[in-house]
Design a protein around this nucleic acid. Structure first.
Lengths: 180, 180
DNA sequence: GCAGACTATGTCAGAAGTGACATAGTCTGC
DNA sequence: GCAGACTATGTCACTTCTGACATAGTCTGC
């Protein structure tokens, strides 16, 4: 019934109360939990979650034409989130534009392709360096019952992904150069 | 103007003429090019591509209430596809339900979590074995100008991805066991 | 000759997600 | 005192994608 976005919001609120704006700020970058949403979607979803009793809010004075709404998880919301976590994830189709381009790469100019992959490699290496700096700040994995474990475990996933991706870009560039 | 799905269809047609049904069959599994679509979407997109002159078709006798339509790339379609391949990919937000669950995993029962990751690991190891069998059939990378290069390069990406993913699942299970 | 799987094309309602538009108070530095 | 950045909530049109419904001929094995 609740959408995956709904659970993403509950997962953020499980760490403490937030306004819709705060949640949107946390979801702007895919760092740490690999789910993004715009504020337009978040405000709409918060209304649904509040109607379903999974979140509640207090109105507090703040900027803007209306009061700000500080949302928190209700006990029902916490139960729903906990139950959802251990259920098998819904299969989401992989849709990767760069891999699709690679599928058609035999048609293209090798020089332009090398430029494309060089740029992608740069992006992945940059992200990798950023994630490595973040990992250092943890100084080892937190306890699995600590909220910070969630951040660390997703960071580890991101690290592995960026390494695999950078490696593949390097392999592609080597292939394209070998054929000269 | 043309959507990514449109280019995915052009990329399939670049390898030879196909019916909408054939394209749908090729896109049912994310193997080799990491883009999936249902036939309902494909038929609709083929109509748009035909209207734009990027594909053309011959009606031939076949099963069903209407004749079957065998689509092929037009010269304009080929040009559009080639131009698209080397353009930087549009950033697609990462949305990964398992990683999101991991972000909230500190709330959940470690036993149930281990079961979840054990099952995911099984899936990734199975896919990895399948990809490795496929890789063997290639016997080394084809020339970058060969259509088979597209298949091989995307397969390499899939291999790297499944390895990284399996590794991460194993790390998660170790973390969950260490805390007993 | 007939059942069942497969080939084949299409529509439609609805969910999920994007990007633009709309509004307006607060806080910081010059 | 004022500009500009930031906080804050919301709507709306549009695109993309899903899942169900609809239809019907062909091919294989029993």
């Amino acid at each position: 019934m609740t959408s995956t976005l709904g659970y993403a919001i509950l997962a953020v609120l499980a760490r403490g109360e937030r306004t819709g704006y705060d949640i949107a700020a946390a979801m702007r970058r895919p760092v740490s939990y690999f789910w993004t949403a715009r504020h337009s979607q978040i405000h709409a979803e918060l209304q649904k979650l509040a109607a379903g009793g999974l979140v509640a809010f207090d109105a507090r004075h703040g900027p803007g034409p209306q009061d700000k709404k500080v949302y928190r998880l209700t006990p029902e919301g916490g139960d729903a989130l906990r139950a959802w976590v251990t259920e098998p994830p819904r299969e989401r189709p992989e849709r990767d534009e760069l891999v699709l381009k690679t599928y058609a790469s035999w048609l293209a100019d090798p020089g332009l392709l090398r430029r494309l992959f060089a740029e992608q490699l740069r992006v992945h290496e940059e992200r990798l360096a950023e994630y490595e700096r973040e990992e250092e700040r943890f100084g080892g994995p937190p306890d699995p019952g600590d909220p910070r474990f969630g951040n660390y475990a997703t960071l580890r996933c991101g690290l592995g992904y960026e390494r695999h991706r950078a490696e593949w870009c390097r392999w592609m560039m080597a292939q394209l150069s070998a054929s000269l």
